[in-house]
Design a protein around this nucleic acid. Structure first.
Lengths: 210, 210
DNA sequence: ATAAAACTTGTTGTCGACAAGCAAGTGAGT
DNA sequence: ACTCACTTGCTTGTCGACAACAAGTTTTAT
């Protein structure tokens, strides 16, 4: 199943390669299965076997079901944040927030599976005793800090009004995205994400432009 | 344990009274346990026994664990929507939306247990195969419709600009509340819900006032 | 007294977790 | 370059917990 080029030692695969391959296979399998059956409905046995391994590997590798989900959450978040950083570049202020909204819409359109699973996992993190709540808290806090920094940079650059409260705007912005994504997840047809983003951009301009 | 007044027949309790009492006891027990252990961590046995019954009653009454959670969700939602309707009364437009924001903050402050459990259950509804997703969809849709109607009424009454898009505003509003509540749930200290609501009210005035 | 409804107990299949074992890979000493 | 001790990746056996269902018991109704 894996490639058959030999390593320097003459062995088929390095240990690091083996784990990398099985890791990725299991994370991919988990995404598919979470999409289809939700977190409760996916079993470690199903993940292991869909990935081409035994029922026991997922527990061995990730410690627990929650540990695996935490890793899926971090993995998808990394992809999204990388993409976001590329798109925003060194923009700031209203520009940065606007292209970030466009980027998120693009992410949802291009990678709906990743986006859906990420939101499902965020929702799972809401439960008390959730072993990956901290991951969700950290990611949301980081995004919030990024937005606040964009606004402060915009104020310094002169594109954002001096009397704006960066933290307040950031909270509104993150709450909007989080809430919209939830509504989209539970009932995709009921929301026009693109239209809502245009409205949000207009609001931000009204609020922040001087 | 229950009251000891006899019914007309000489029996201690009517059948309807018995189910009403055990129903309420189990829903209350479920709220406590969900708060403490999350939905995954609460067992039907724990719910039944905390309510003062056997491990089997919850399944017998609600059909399944998901059926019980659905009932908890509907039960708390009813309380919230009743309270909301009383507060809003026949207000419309920006007034209605503003007092609704205040009412929600009040709800969270006065009944944080109910508010937290409701949000936890909404999050659970995000999972595919969730047996009570439709309940969450219906409640969110209804609240969205209410908001849109407030705005249309405000437009007719002349307090809201004629060129406002009621549906768009309603989506933004519901997304804001949904997102804020999630952020509050996963990390209560990180958000100043009252301050954010004041910001939101200001935004709505800026957007809708003519 | 007989039916019906509320409630409990017995049972089964599934799942996550852990432990013990097997197989593949690694690297130091020769 | 070979090998042998060791490590790491992975699998299988097993156990306790749980939801669901069925069959049974108790309480209320007629």
């Amino acid at each position: 199943m894996p490639g058959n080029a030999l390593t320097a030692n003459g062995s088929a695969l390095t240990q690091a390669e083996r784990t990398a391959i099985s890791d990725k296979a299991m994370l991919d399998a988990a995404i598919d299965l979470i999409l289809e059956h939700g977190t409760d409905g996916t079993t470690l046995q199903a993940i292991g076997e869909k990935a081409g391994y035994s029922r026991g590997l997922a527990t061995y590798r990730f410690g627990s079901k929650a540990g695996l989900f935490d890793e899926v959450c971090k993995s998808i978040s990394r992809r999204w944040l990388n993409y976001l950083n590329n798109v925003v570049g060194d923009k700031d202020g209203i520009d940065a927030m606007s292209v970030a909204l466009d980027a998120f819409f693009q992410f949802i359109s291009d990678s709906p599976r990743d986006a859906r699973v990420l939101q499902i996992l965020y929702c799972g993190a809401a439960s008390p005793k959730s072993e990956y709540r901290q991951t969700s808290v950290n990611i949301h806090q980081r995004q919030r800090d990024d937005v606040a920094n964009w606004i402060r940079a915009g104020m310094q650059a002169g594109s954002v009004r001096e009397d704006a409260d960066a933290e307040s705007v950031a909270v509104q912005y993150i709450a909007y995205i989080s809430g919209m994504t939830y509504l989209w997840l539970i009932n995709p047809e009921s929301v026009d994400f693109g239209k809502a983003n245009e409205d949000m951009k207009q609001q931000l301009r009204r609020w922040l432009q001087q």
